[in-house]
């Protein structure tokens, strides 16, 4: 019973998303003002031939700063999980 319900809900979700996807235009994005601005001005303003890099590091540099911080934090988290336990130390609430 639960399986049937689960499948039905999933199927409904699938149908809805498919209906939405059929309306999306592929290969012809409707609003391109910002990207056209970048494509026109990136080379003159930043001097980079690769527009993607100029966006990643210049126009949207704050995003990249946040991303670098997330990577740093993830590394700290992994390090915290696998740190060596000191003599006699146990995992908490054990």
């Amino acid at each position: 019973m639960r399986h049937v319900l689960f499948s039905a809900i999933l199927l409904l979700f699938f149908g809805g998303l498919m209906y939405l996807a059929a309306d999306l235009p592929f290969g012809d994005p409707p609003r391109t003002d910002m990207d056209d601005y970048f494509l026109r001005n990136a080379q003159a303003q930043t001097g980079a031939n690769n527009v993607v890099t100029s966006i990643v590091f210049d126009f949207r540099g704050f995003d990249t700063l946040g991303e670098a911080t997330v990577l740093f934090t993830a590394v700290l988290g992994v390090g915290m999980m696998f740190r060596k336990l000191k003599e006699g130390e146990e995992y908490e609430n054990d």
């Binding site: 930043t46 001097g47 980079a48 590091f57 210049d58 990577l71």
Partner: peptide, 20 residues
């Protein structure tokens, strides 16, 4: 030697990703 700070930022992020 184009693009101002971009090569430096690229280098910084590259080193960071390598280390991380």
């Amino acid at each position: 030697n184009t693009a101002g700070l971009l090569p430096l930022l690229n280098f910084g992020v590259g080193i960071e990703v390598l280390g991380g």
